[in-house]
Simulated scan of single mutants.
Amino acid sequence: MESIMVFFVAISPFLYKLYEYIPGATGDSVSFLGITITSHGFADVSTFIWFMMGKIVPLYLLIFWFLTVKNWWYHIILIPIAMYAFQIFEVLYNYDNDIDTENLLWLLPICIIIIPFVYFLRIKLYDKYVLGIDLEAIEAELDELKAKGYSSEKTDLSSEFKDVANQKEISDKNISTGTLENFLKNIQDRIQGWLHLKF
């Protein structure tokens, strides 16, 4: 499978220029390898093939990327895949003279599903690996506390947390007082150095 993907990635520039290699593609239709290709409203078959290869080549490259990428955000690649697929569908099955017009409305439901999914996945990963918030570990710890007999109605835990908070507040005051004393001592030392005074 990987060899096939590598092969198609390697020949993608040649597939994009396929319109130059089909003989007789300047008319309204051409038979190539037993397949009849019409212009589908374009000026000629060559222009139609050029347009289609401009959609098909990025489409299959994006599909290969989607199938092989290992990043957490790979679901977002489905949006450009759907965009190219809708553009190809519109050219093949729409018989008016306008192209690449309505596919944005077709993409809207896909965007509404995929973008929030990727965003919530990002939030979960950011919380776990950047902020260190592991919801499963917190849930396990809460279950363990419930198993020991603690509940939200009891105040034992809240009093313990209040004691810890009070100790932290006292230590913060000591740190800030110590920092202020050091700052004033440094100012006193500088003034003494300037005036060459000794106390």
Rank of each mutant, 00 (worst) to 15 (best):
S3D: 15
V9H: 03
V9I: 05
V9A: 07
L15M: 14
L15D: 00
L15P: 00
Y16W: 15
L18I: 00
E20A: 01
E20D: 09
Y21E: 00
Y21C: 00
S29F: 02
S29W: 01
S29V: 02
S29L: 05
S31F: 09
S31V: 14
L33I: 07
L33N: 10
I35Q: 10
I37L: 15
F42H: 01
I49K: 02
W50K: 00
M52K: 04
M52P: 04
M53Q: 04
G54L: 11
G54Y: 04
G54M: 09
L59Y: 02
L61F: 14
L62D: 12
L62R: 03
F64V: 04
F64G: 06
F66D: 13
F66K: 09
T68I: 01
W72V: 12
L78P: 12
L78F: 05
I79P: 13
P80I: 07
P80N: 09
I81P: 11
I88K: 01
F89I: 12
F89A: 14
L92R: 04
Y93S: 09
Y95P: 05
D96G: 09
D96N: 12
D98L: 07
I99V: 14
T101P: 01
N103Q: 08
N103I: 05
L107C: 07
I113C: 10
I115T: 09
L121Q: 15
L121P: 11
R122K: 06
R122I: 11
K124M: 04
K124S: 08
Y126R: 10
V130W: 01
V130H: 00
V130A: 08
I133D: 05
L135H: 07
E136D: 15
A137Y: 13
A137F: 10
E139M: 07
E141L: 13
D143M: 12
E144D: 09
L145H: 03
E153S: 14
D156N: 01
L157N: 03
S158G: 00
F161M: 08
F161Y: 10
F161S: 07
V164E: 08
A165Q: 11
Q167D: 14
E169D: 11
I170R: 03
S171R: 02
I175C: 07
T179S: 07
L180E: 06
L180Y: 03
L180V: 04
N182I: 02
N182H: 12
D189P: 08
R190C: 06
I191D: 08
H196G: 03
